[in-house]
Amino acid sequence: MLGNEKKTNFVSIKLKKYLYSNTMNVVRRIVDLYADGFRQMTIGRTLWMIIIIKLVIIFAVLKCFFFPDFIATHAEEGQESDFVAGQVLGK
């Protein structure tokens, strides 16, 4: 009985190790894919720079300063439907 239990434990540990190493292998390959890809970029560097600048302008400037959520800034929390009713039915 005890021998069987030891055997099962041994198999389970081996399986866990195998799965762990396999998972790590996949993760490592994914990290490598991205790391090597980014390292070897040529035109991609310019494109990434443009994307980052664009996202900063869109989210940090336009969204923050020019595009507030109109209802959230004008209606009390939980009273949004009353605010919209006032806007829509008052026109």
Partner: peptide, 28 residues
């Protein structure tokens, strides 16, 4: 890839406009 990168997030500003300029419509 060049066109894809240039187009990224150009649609998101439409959603900003919904929330600010078209809030009654967006709620509706």
């Amino acid at each position: 890839g060049i066109n894809f990168a240039m187009g990224v997030a150009t649609g998101i500003v439409l959603e900003f406009e919904f929330g600010t300029n078209w809030s009654n419509y967006s709620w509706f």
